[in-house]
Design a protein around this nucleic acid. Structure first.
Lengths: 227, 227
DNA sequence: ATCAATTTTTAGATTTGTCTAAATTTTTAT
DNA sequence: ATAAAAATTTAGACAAATCTAAAAATTGAT
């Protein structure tokens, strides 16, 4: 009777676990710890164990007792599908409905579970096949291809170098609002004018303004080196 | 402790019950039978009884044992909110994503449960506040106002009268596909040329073509009388 | 008005996803 | 190498939403 199982669609909970495991690096070769998943998902390790077994049954992860979980090929495809949906909906919300980039996450968390291949492909088309979401993260294609951008953290750029702001590492609402308030937007050119040894804070130039930012800010902003 | 309860959002299942009860006329003064709800929702009467108690706890319905269920004011508002979302999403799918009117129902059934007031209001705005969905059903406003159209079934129109096709009673995929195939679309003018006593079939004129339709078809097409 | 048919509810079970608390395994520090 | 700490699993419980089977109430037909 068991061979039916993977014909059934995944539950919302299963999808969320897959997404979390992917996010924690479960696509690589080192498996993800039960505790890490529990923390990421704000749940208990025992719940993670239960779900790990179920996902293993469905062929989405490899699970070995006491050794954590690793996405299978099928699990990775599933994860990319969910991430694709999440990020496309984020673009839709920003581009078509005038949401700001700090408002989209919650709603996209719901929309990513809508089951209709046609729907998401049409949304993709409407948006003219965007490559990046509003936070600069790449959008997997329909076939699960993933194009990670050539980028580095602002905090790791050398003094007096220049780069274009292409993404954020932390996409919490508070960080994004801070960036808005200080008119730091994706696409802007940033130049590092000075570094403070004491606290690693930076003096940067962005859009003709000079501006002090803490290390914590710089360590959450991705820039693309000017070649 | 009980006064928290109605702050929590409704579950998907609760929303589906509310919608079904509304659909069965539970907004009027005669209450809806357990069996009718079970049939409508393709579930068992005992499940309905359980849910009736839960919805009554939450103040969404009045429930008296052995006497069925009646939506409260709050229940009616909830129902109208869900119907509003369902119908707006249907318009969105047709107008913005080129879905055909026989494809939208399933997807809208999922989208109607997305919880974000801003989202649906923005969708409403994007669509320029449509009054009717693709099947001709009216879309409740944000405040729950409902404008039922002045319409009647084609089968009830007198011989040789003329009307504009404004909606369908049955919106099953098979019926809608039949209409498409025969180029019967909302907005078209229909004239009744002849009625057959034997089987109540009609000879109609639509878009310059003459056309025979069975009573079953005519009894599922709404027209607006030409005044 | 009574009894049979129908409708509805109750009681008890099941599944999914979660939890707590206890047991077990693995890791780490000495 | 071993004991303490940390991580993980198991066992048993619970809430939500459902089901089946049996009991109870209502309805309807004579």
């Amino acid at each position: 009777m068991y061979f039916w199982r993977n014909l059934y669609p995944l539950t919302r909970s299963e999808e969320n676990y897959i997404k979390a495991i992917f996010h924690l690096g479960g696509n690589a070769s080192t498996s993800v710890a039960t505790n890490a998943i529990a923390e990421e998902m704000d749940t208990k390790p025992s719940s993670v164990t239960d779900m790990a077994k179920k996902l293993a049954d469905k062929g989405l992860v490899n699970y070995v007792r006491y050794q954590g979980v690793l996405l299978t090929e099928k699990g990775i495809k599933t994860a990319l599908g969910i991430i694709r949906k999440h990020r496309l909906w984020e673009v839709f919300l920003v581009k078509k409905l005038d949401f700001s980039w700090d408002e989209v996450h919650e709603v996209a968390e719901q929309l990513e579970h809508i089951k209709s291949e046609k729907l998401i492909d049409k949304i993709d088309e409407l948006l003219e096949f965007p490559k990046y979401d509003p936070h600069g993260d790449p959008i997997p294609t329909k076939n699960g291809e993933f194009q990670e951008r050539d980028k580095q953290l602002l905090s790791e750029m050398p003094l007096s170098s220049t780069g274009i702001c292409v993404g954020v590492k932390d996409s919490s609402s508070s960080f994004l609002k801070f960036l808005d308030k200080n008119q730091i937007a994706l696409g802007e050119t940033i130049q590092i004018l000075d570094k403070e040894d004491f606290d690693d804070s930076l003096l940067i130039k962005i859009a003709e303004r000079e501006f002090h930012i803490s290390h914590q800010i710089a360590a959450n902003l991705f820039v693309k080196k000017n070649s």
